[in-house]
Design a binder for these strands. Sequence first.
DNA 1: CGGAACACCGCAAGCCTTTGGAATGACGAA
DNA 2: TTCGTCATTCCAAAGGCTTGCGGTGTTCCG
Lengths: 340, 340
Amino acid sequence: MAPSIRTIAKLAGTSVSSVSRVINNSGYASPDLRERVEAAIRSLNFTPSKGARMLRGEPSRMIGLILPSIDVPFFGILAHTIEQHLFECGFQTLICSTAENADHEARYIAMLLSQRVDGVIVASAFSDTGHFRALADAGIPIIAIDRDLSGIADAAVMADHEEGGRLMVRHLLSFGHEKIGVVGAPGHSQPVQLRLAGIREELAKTGLEPLAVSLSGEHSFAETYRLARGLLEARPEVTALIGTTDIAAIACIHAAHDLGFTVPDDYSVIGFDDLPEAMFVLPRLTTVAQPIRGVGIAAADTLAKMIAARESGAPPVAADTTRMPVALVARQSVGPARSV
Amino acid sequence: MAPSIRTIAKLAGTSVSSVSRVINNSGYASPDLRERVEAAIRSLNFTPSKGARMLRGEPSRMIGLILPSIDVPFFGILAHTIEQHLFECGFQTLICSTAENADHEARYIAMLLSQRVDGVIVASAFSDTGHFRALADAGIPIIAIDRDLSGIADAAVMADHEEGGRLMVRHLLSFGHEKIGVVGAPGHSQPVQLRLAGIREELAKTGLEPLAVSLSGEHSFAETYRLARGLLEARPEVTALIGTTDIAAIACIHAAHDLGFTVPDDYSVIGFDDLPEAMFVLPRLTTVAQPIRGVGIAAADTLAKMIAARESGAPPVAADTTRMPVALVARQSVGPARSV
DNA sequence: CGGAACACCGCAAGCCTTTGGAATGACGAA
DNA sequence: TTCGTCATTCCAAAGGCTTGCGGTGTTCCG
C-alpha cells in the first residue's frame, strides 16, 4: 500500500540507492538528481519504513514507559513530561498502562521487546520483578522512577519520600498537633511506605506515634474517603490527618466536612504531591510538593544519556538512585490544634 | 544483539522455517521439534522482531493517538480508556501530545507514517487540517474524537456538546437565574464553541442572552480564574456563572470565594465534563456529565472495526459522526437566584 | 508387496532499506 | 592519445521473518 523506496526510484528514473542517499544526505547527489527525487517523494508522500530501517540495525528510537494508569493525575503529569522531553530528544514513547495487572505487564513487556525499544522507564513494579528480568537480560537500559527496582534498574530517580514524611509531621507538630491519624493507599506502594517511614521516624523523635493508620489496597478518592470517614468516627480525638497523597488528603477534608466539621478549625489536614488538585479544594490543601516534572525530566535525560553512551560504544554510565528534594507548601488546611 | 530466528534454528538444530511455524502455529510440527524450538526460545528469551514482520506485509497493530496534552484530566482519562481498550483488541497505542503546536503535530504525523500505524485517533485539530491530509492520503483510517475533522476523518465520535449547553441553562433557569455569565477557554476549541452555541440557543428561547462571555486562549485553572474574577468584578449583578469546563467552573467558585462570596448563596456555578475533580471542590460542583470513557471506547471500537474490515477486504464501513448523550448531575454549586 | 496418502521439514524468494564497492562518464594532464 | 582523477550513479548483499513449494520418510490399504 504505502509506496516504497523502489517506487520513488522508478518515478524519479534512478536507482534505490540514489534515493536512499538523498534521503539520508550521504554520498554524492547532483542537484538535478536530488531535485527529481525530492519531487517524487513529495508527490507520493513517501515516508521510509521504520521497520526496514530497524532491520538494518538502526536503533528504533522508541522507549517504553510502564506505569499503573495514566488517568490518575500524578501519572498523567509524569507521563506527559517524559513523553514531551523524550520527544525533544528524538524518541517516541510507548506508554503502557499496566493497571497493576501482572498479565498485562507481561504482555506489554513482550510487545516492547518485539518492538526492540531502545530503553524503558518503569514506575510500576507493584509486586515481583519477574517480567522485567527479560528486559534486563536483553540488555535494554531500564530506569526506575518514583520507586526502586532493586537489581533490575540501571538507575532510579524519585522524590525524597522519607524526607517528605518528616516534613509533614514537623509542620503538624509546629501547630501543636500530637494526635495524628494517617490515611492513604495503597499499602503495597513503595513510595507510600517510604513516606510512612519518614512520618514514624519524625514522630518517634518526640516519643510519639500515629494514633491510627488506615491504608487500603486501592488508591481511589472513594476508597480513601471511606477510610478517612471511618477513622474520624472511630478516633474523633485526633486533631490532624495526614493523607499519604493529595487525593487522600482531599478525601480527608471531605470526610471531615460531611461529618459536620470544618478544616482547619476542627481538624487539620496535610497531603503529599502538590497536584493541581490541591488548589481545587476549599480550604486549599497544605501539602508537601514533590517535583513531578523534575523527576520525569531527570529520568528521561538519564535514559537518553545511557542510550547515547551505548551507541557510541562508550562504557555504560554508572548511575544509581537520585533522590529529588521535596518542599512544604503551606496553604489553608492546617491550623493550630484545637485545645483538648 | 537480540537473537534472531536463525539463532534459534541453529540452537534447536532445525531450519528457520520450522521455527517460524512453531511460533505461528502454522503447518506441521512434531512434538519433538516443537519442544526443542520452544526450549531454545525460552533459553535465549527470543521475541520475533516486529520490524521484520511488518516488512512481510503484516499489519503493525499500532495505532496513533493525537491529542493536545495528556496531563490535563480530561485527556488523561480519554487516553487511558482508549489505550486500554485498544490493548484488549490487540493494538498498541502511540500517544502523541502535540501541545497544540503545529510543528510537533507535523513531526508526530511523520513518525506515525513511518511506523506504518494501522489507524489514527485524533482529538487535536486546533487549527488547520493540513498535516492530517498526509495520513488520509496514505489510506490510514482516521477517527476524530471530541470534535469534528471535516473532510478528513472517516468517522467522529463526541459528546453532544450543544445539548450540554442547553442543559446547563435549563438548569439555571429553573432556579430563577436570568443574569448569566460564561467563562471558559479556549475560544478556538470546537467543543467549547458548540457548548456556547447551545447556551445561546436555549437562552434565546426566553429572549435572554449571556450577560458576559469571557473566553481566553489558554485552558488553565490560573487563566480561567483570572477571567472569572474579572467578570465578577466587572458585572457583579450576574447571579450565575457557567464554566465551559469543570476546571473553569472550579475556578469560578474560587474567584467568588476569594471575593468574599459563597456559592451557591451569592452566586451559582455550573460546569461541564463531570471530571473526578468536580467532586473535589466544596461545594461539590453541579455539572453536565459527558461520557468520556464511552466516547473513548466507541472511537476505539469503530477504528478496530474499520481496520478489521479493511484487512478482510470488506467494503469500508460507513460511519459518520456519532453524538453521545450528556446528562445533568445536580450537586451543591447551584441554588436559587438571590433576589435582586 | 506396491503405491498412494500423509506427516514432517527445509529451501529460497521476497518485503524495504542502507552501504561498501564497483561502474560509468567527463575531463584535464602528460 | 592514453591515463589517472573525480564526480556521480548503480549493483548487490545483508538483515529477520513468513510461506509456497518441493523433498524426505512413514504409514496404511488393497
